[in-house]
């Protein structure tokens, strides 16, 4: 659009060459007609022409070099702006310089906008974090009082049931708020993950240790296939939590008597930890949604849960440069694979 108003450089060159040739022919014709054939004059004219053309070419070179230099400066400025480095400031009385300053101003305006947006975003995140945090204390009291109430000796069965429900729901709310606090801290970068290359076996064991009793109660067999030397770059505590969320789901959605298989192996760039269960599975059209916040599968309605575990796990792993994928055969089980970078 802007380009179309400026003639193409090649066409411009042809035009100039044609004008120059026309002038040359006209000039020679006139001389020959007025003076007849004179070698001295011809020599002089030739010398003069060469001198003029030479000076012209030299001037052209200088101009071109200036232009390239200017282009380089502008390119350098844009690069600096992209990488957020300090800008070079040049002051001199040329239009190039004033253009540079206009560009600089434009870049600064963009930066200021970016800064404002980031500040606003942080305010919202802080608000979420505050809300989550401030609700913790009253919630802990609700939990405590409901426990005290449940310990009262002469409660009617109906009342006892209601008190139990209050307890269960408060615990659910407590877990939800704890997860939301973790999420907002992860997202705002308030938590710095201690990622280092270490064996994954210990991390898997740590995640499993909180689940042995529950798996045992449901008579679920857990197999681990992991070379003690298989390692990946990860944060021990947080990765263990992500794995726990995957494993907890596996235990939750597997029928009593089923089995869970954990396999870890290294490949070219990532180490994969696979959690395969023999549970109810995930329908194909739901697979792409399961990592969404508060998404719950249609088959999962009867089981306790709020749909934040996988979302949190995906967040923890992707912050570390990894990813979690899911595959499933409904009725036969699901396979969640966690990829962690090796370097």
């Amino acid at each position: 659009m802007i380009n179309s108003t400026v003639p193409h450089p090649r066409r411009l060159r042809y035009l100039f060459s044609a004008v120059f040739l026309l002038l040359l022919i006209g000039y020679s014709g006139t001389i020959l007609y007025l003076e007849g054939f004179s070698p001295a004059l011809l020599q002089l004219t030739l010398l003069f022409l060469i001198a003029v053309l030479g000076t012209g070419a030299l001037y052209n070179r200088v101009l071109q070099r200036q232009l390239t230099g200017f282009m380089d400066t502008v390119e350098e400025m844009v690069d600096r702006a992209i990488h957020g480095r300090e800008q070079l400031t040049l002051f001199d009385e040329t239009r190039l310089s004033s253009l540079e300053h206009k560009l600089l101003r434009y870049i600064e305006m963009g930066k200021a906008n970016e800064h404002n947006l980031a500040a606003e975003k942080n305010m919202i995140k802080e608000l979420i974090s505050d809300i989550s945090h401030q609700t913790k204390t009253p919630l802990a009291s609700v939990l405590l009082y409901s426990q005290l109430l449940a310990e009262t000796p002469d409660l009617s069965p109906d009342t006892r049931q209601l008190v139990e429900q209050i307890g269960i729901q408060s615990e659910k709310l407590d877990w939800l708020i704890t997860s939301l606090i973790k999420l907002s801290r992860l997202e705002t970068g308030m938590i710095h993950l201690q990622s280092e290359v270490r064996p994954v076996a210990a991390t898997i064991t740590s995640a499993l240790s909180h689940l042995y009793t529950r798996a045992g109660n449901k008579n679920i067999i857990i197999n681990i296939d992991c070379d003690p030397l298989t390692s990946a770059r990860h944060d021990y505590k947080w990765t263990s939590e992500a794995l726990f969320n995957l494993l907890e789901n596996a235990v939750k959605y597997t029928e009593p008597g089923g089995s869970i298989r954990i396999t870890a192996e290294g490949n070219e760039m990532f180490t994969r930890i696979e959690v395969a269960d023999t549970g109810i599975g995930i329908p194909e059209d739901e697979l792409e949604h399961i990592f969404r916040r508060f998404y719950r599968g249609h088959n999962a309605r009867e089981v306790e849960g709020i749909g934040i575990g996988l979302f949190l796990a995906q967040k923890i792993i992707s912050i570390q440069g990894g990813y979690i994928t899911a595959a499933s055969q409904p009725g036969q089980g699901s396979r969640l694979t966690l990829y962690l970078p090796q370097l």
Binding site: N267, E268, M269, F270, R272, G322, Y323, T325, T337, Y339
Partner: peptide, 10 residues
């Protein structure tokens, strides 16, 4: 398939 997953993650 394993390398495919890796390339896709990247």
């Amino acid at each position: 398939s394993k390398t495919s997953q890796e390339v896709l993650i990247l």
